[in-house]
Design a protein around this nucleic acid. Structure first.
Lengths: 200, 200, 200, 200
DNA sequence: AATGAATGAGTCTTCATTCAT
DNA sequence: AATGAATGAAGACTCATTCAT
């Protein structure tokens, strides 16, 4: 019973996420989802109050998974510098391994769907908070020289997002190797924040 | 007469761009546009063959303006390092001064609207090409130490886009000052690509 | 329940057929049909994929009914000459008893709607084939003297159609009695194909 | 001046007739016509009050031409039997030589466009009247044995129309040669009306 | 737990026609 | 003689959602 139930719910979420990824918000339709999962359109309403709730659930789950991924990645490291990199790489790895889930987080939040309840954003903050604390630690250890750790946190996030989204939206020049592009971008971003005495 | 004429076409473009910015592609409708400009929906078809053409025009114009902005910004500088920074700042300045036009370029190109004619993308490349050439010059002058200028070009672009889009989509923490955020981000991005012999 | 259900589909078909007959293909509209049957335009799409499918269903059903009518009419006769006449009269009787269904078959097939799937025409051939076989039999029995039975078959069909369509499209002189006109026309057509040794 | 004028008017008529023939009444549009003739849609209204008037003109002209063709054809013959056949062949020849003009007469008159002013039909009668008078003559000469010449007239007309329309609407089996089909049909139709003592 | 029937509002687009020039 | 601008009405079709079962 609850098995079957969960199964359909899951199928609906997966299908919705996939459509969102491949065809965009504007052509996401309850009927298409229903058809794809092999149920009636009405059935979707048994699990989700309406289209917005369905999408909100999608976002929520993705955000949660991303947060967990980052936390796990960081928890395996000991030194501050390793944690710093682990968070960054954890973020990118999640995005590349789960493009559909990653995209859902950003795609839908923009202008298309402003009604996403603000309180639910708390969860998103978990990741930011973790990175910020590591950066603060890094400053105190002299690894970085930053006046505003909060700004640095958001800036790193933003730059990473830019890099990932360029790759995932296929705007990257076809002659460029994706992995190399990502690897080099990460290095540049990290370098941009580290104190550069190392070379001396 | 010719004043009035140009005016409606322009009004349609402005209104469309604005709706695209505030409400997204999915809720952009010919009827809404018409209502907003105070004309009948039919009238739009006097100036644009259909919805796609209208949007393509929007994109084309924005891309063109952005390209021009970057080129002008760079042309006023002499040294390579100044040109490098001028391109970056020209890009960001355009984006911040014309958020709607900037967003149009990226928003609509994603999955929602894949049918944008590939040939028209040539124009977009103009900016990339300029930055790439400056980077190559920078390498030859020993300012940067990069193996793949093309990757660097795209990486910078991507990072800048990430920073701008975070600000424009209002995902930035409300306690952070936008201008400061942008300024610091630019500095970090630039630093990430320059040779750091300075400190030695 | 299942009564009501079948009813709406049927009502849609009947109404469509009637509109097609009275106002022609060009002014047949989903909205009008919906209004007439007392349902929303959307509801039509519950029973028919689109306008074309609706019309195709109409054609298919009419063709089928006509075929059956002809076959039944012929099957009740024994001699070749009787079968020959029975087919002709069966055709005409069906057309006169079901003018709307008859017209649907021809009206819509013309240039207005070329996209009727070719394979579905097989059914139409059933009637032709039957008449052709009877004519061949008639030739072998010396009743008719024809070199090309296939041409004769189509010619009879065409002439009958001309006669019926003149009547049904109300192009007949108002002073002429319809039934008499049809009766005499049939006789002339039949005479045109029989060997005229009788009088000798 | 009147040269140019007539030229555009003529072009409009020709184009309309052609569209009517190739695409049917439902997709005949003032704008398409205008585009095709290289004028503005508005210009059509300089020559024709509205769409209906345009089509009526089309019909009127075709009817007139057909009438003339039949009359000419008949006037060259002396004997009644020759006149009889000449009318029939004149009708068919006109139809086959001017399919677009022929189709206009029948296509549009049916249900699609019932509003064609009844009085204008007088002209159509000219052809009927001629055939009827020849048939009456034929009866008095003992060539035909018919009680109702008016019915015979209409019946011949109807049969011929059936034959022609089957050919022109491409409903004829592709294995049948058109000319042979028409020739044989005419012969059968004629035979159906002649007294058959001749063979004895 | 699941669905078939139904719909009002909305989508883009086309049409014949008018009006001022 | 000719036209560009404009529009109200209508076209087919899609959508999210509700309701009774």
């Amino acid at each position: 019973m609850s098995e079957e139930e969960k199964s359909l719910r899951e199928k609906i979420l997966d299908t919705s996420r996939h459509f969102l990824f491949t065809e965009g918000y504007s052509s996401l339709s309850m009927r298409k989802i229903a058809k794809e999962v092999g149920a009636s359109a009405t059935s979707i309403y048994l699990y989700f109050e309406n289209k917005d709730h369905l999408i909100h659930t999608l976002i929520e789950e993705s955000v949660e998974e991303l947060s967990v991924a980052i936390e796990e990645s960081a928890s395996q490291k000991l030194s501050t510098i390793d944690k710093f990199e682990a968070i960054i790489r954890g973020y990118v790895s999640f995005a590349m391994a789960n493009p559909e889930k990653y995209q859902v987080i950003y795609m839908v939040l923009s202008s298309e769907m402003g009604r996403y309840p603000k309180e639910k954003f708390r969860k998103v903050r978990r990741g930011y908070a973790l990175l910020e604390s590591v950066i603060k630690q890094g400053i105190s250890e002299g690894l970085m020289e930053l006046e505003e750790p909060k700004i640095a946190t958001y800036s790193i996030w933003a730059q990473l997002h830019g890099v990932i989204s360029v790759v995932q939206s296929q705007r990257l020049d076809s002659r460029i190797d994706k992995n190399k592009f990502i690897e080099e971008s990460i290095e540049h971003i990290v370098q941009g924040f580290l104190v550069r005495i190392t070379t001396s």
